[in-house]
Amino acid sequence: MARLLKPFEYFEPRTVEEAVQLLSKYGHQAKVLAGGTDLLISMKKRKITPQYVVYIKSIPELDYIHYSQQAGLKIGALATHTAIADSAIIKDKFELLASACGKVGTPQVRNMGTIGGNICEGGPSQDSVPSLLVLEAKLKLISLHGERIVPIDEFFIAPFKTALQEAELLTEIQIPTPPPRSAGCYKWFTKITTVDESLAGVAVLMLLDSTDGICRDLKIGLCSVAPTPIRARRAEQVLRDKKIDNSLIERAARVAVEETSPRSRADYRKRMTGVLVREAISETWQKIRQLHLRERA
């Protein structure tokens, strides 16, 4: 890895419009710089050598966390992992996202890195993504031609390849409020040490009927176990509309494992996916039952 970056022309647009104009003008030769925690490494490794770098942290209106019951959660693309992990409203209502963002990198990386950058990097191991998948987040992409809204499960195409077009900018992540009496969590194992990339990450969101204990909805999101982050849709089916018990959870975990296609350390990753899915569902199930008990009390 080189220590220095190749020369490039650098821009600090003040508005989204200015930014997308630059992106549209320079096309594939331009790269968006936000927190820089992924981009600068790629540039030092010479994997990317952009001629133009468009720094967007100069656009203050992209850094926000807004919530209302009706509109749901809206996160500006520039919200840092720290801001999300520490946000009272996200910790309260979207805990699985708070814990995923709290897992990313180190405190320094979380202070610099943004959720928008994490998503747009498009790698298989982006920690924020499984939670966003199960929360059914939508991404607002802006270009000179206007804006479009893309559901996050349509965003990831291949490793480090996303639906984001050349002159588009991700500006907002929109997350609907999960139904009442739902709960979720994000669980992961790192590759080797405590502060390390995820070997496997699993987000679960569950809706349970308090009257009959039937699972009305279940979503499972996975990262680091396939070319892109994925939903384990067949595993979700195992529990949906069923009365949950441990053997059913085990079965869901087994099915989830079948849905993975890890490249390196494949056997271990598969096995650990099973452990994580089982633990994540069990933990969520416990949380939900606690919730119901509290409601009754």
Binding site: I192, T194, D196
Partner: peptide
């Protein structure tokens, strides 16, 4: 060949 792939125990380990 760098600390992203060669992992020394950190303080949390």
């Amino acid at each position: 060949d760098n600390y992203d792939t060669y992992k020394m125990p950190g303080i949390l380990d």
